[in-house]
């Protein structure tokens, strides 16, 4: 029984990574008012590019870096169209989602051809932390994970510190609350929106790259299975704050792992009902949290300093 619980919790931490990274990426952009809805497409591109680069270069690390760069490119496009050209954020986000969707399947087809046996890349190894991983029960759960599990936790804590304990972070948050005031205080709102969206895009790209590197060892069409959209729900669930998003992703990932485990063990429920479970649970969770969620006041809007009022 004990080993089962340990295994379950270990898997929950393992599967939380895409949620954490994509959620934090969404949050960071949203904190300056840019509401990204292209996550699903950006994660797919990250997965596709990350897989291809790791396969050809033999280096997973390089794969992750290039996936992050592809995410940054999408983030830059989002920032440019919304912040500089002042175009509707949802429309642009959806367009980028389409492009991501197309590019992610096009690239493997062009580069690898259409094959029935896709090539595999080695999956991320777990790195036990000396001494700490020896602690009974907690050790194997917390300190025997792959590198990105540690990275995602550190990123979350780092973002919390940056946003809530530094001057720059306060300035960044003010852009997403009331950009006119921020602007009048000499904060460069445009620059803030660009950087938050680009770095947010990097995190989302990394979240995508995690999927082929941990689950399948290869890229499959649509392998995100809605995780990008769930990340948006998670961001609302976490009230657009780094630490609650980290805790929330544990919950999202626990549901995912639970649904999968029960499927493997077998139950009286048809397996399709179990597959629906994460999505239904997300909707139920939103019913209880959506109203109370603290949302950046300027979320989804574009700031035009030449207009008289917001």
């Amino acid at each position: 029984m004990d080993t089962m619980i340990i295994e379950f919790l270990r898997l929950v931490l393992l599967s939380m990574v895409p949620f954490v990274l994509a959620g934090q990426g969404t949050m960071l952009g949203g904190r300056t008012g840019v509401f990204n809805v292209a996550q699903e497409g950006m994660m797919l591109v990250g997965a596709s590019v990350g897989f291809l680069v790791s396969f050809f270069s033999g280096s997973i690390f390089l794969g992750i870096i290039v996936a992050m760069l592809s995410g940054a490119l999408f983030g830059f496009a989002l920032a440019y169209f919304t912040t500089s050209l002042k175009m509707n954020q949802f429309v642009i986000g959806l367009s980028l989602f389409f492009i991501g969707l197309g590019v992610s399947t096009l690239l493997p087809k062009l580069i690898l051809g259409i094959t029935l046996t896709p090539p595999l890349i080695p999956t991320l190894k777990s790195i036990p932390i000396p001494l700490l991983s020896q602690i009974p029960f907690i050790g194997p759960i917390l300190f025997k994970q792959n590198i990105l599990v540690y990275v995602s936790v550190l990123v979350s804590i780092g973002l919390w510190y940056f946003l809530f304990r530094t001057q720059k972070g306060l300035e960044l948050r003010s852009v997403g609350e009331y950009p006119m005031t921020a602007d009048s205080l000499g904060i460069n709102t445009t620059k803030m929106r660009y950087w938050s969206t680009i770095i947010g895009g990097m995190l989302i790209g990394m979240a995508g790259a995690y999927l082929p590197m941990v689950y399948a060892g290869t890229f499959t069409e649509g392998m995100t299975m809605g995780r990008g959209w769930l990340a948006i729900a998670l961001t609302f669930f976490g009230g657009w704050s780094p630490l609650p998003i980290l805790y929330g992703s544990l919950f999202f990932s626990a549901i995912e792992v639970l649904a999968f485990r029960v499927q493997v063990i077998g139950s009286f429920l048809p397996y399709q009902i179990l597959q629906m479970f994460p999505y239904i649970a997300t909707i139920l969770v939103m019913i209880f949290t959506f109203k109370r969620s603290r949302v950046p006041a300027f979320l989804g809007n574009n700031y035009d300093r030449e207009k008289r009022s917001l």
């Binding site: 959209w229 399709q272 999505y279 909707i283």
Partner: peptide, 26 residues
Amino acid sequence: LLYKFNINEILTTVLFNFIALFLIDY
């Protein structure tokens, strides 16, 4: 859900795609 709880329709409509996907499989 939008009317009663003010939940963003982008999210709920997307999530219902996935529910339908598994329902059709069933």
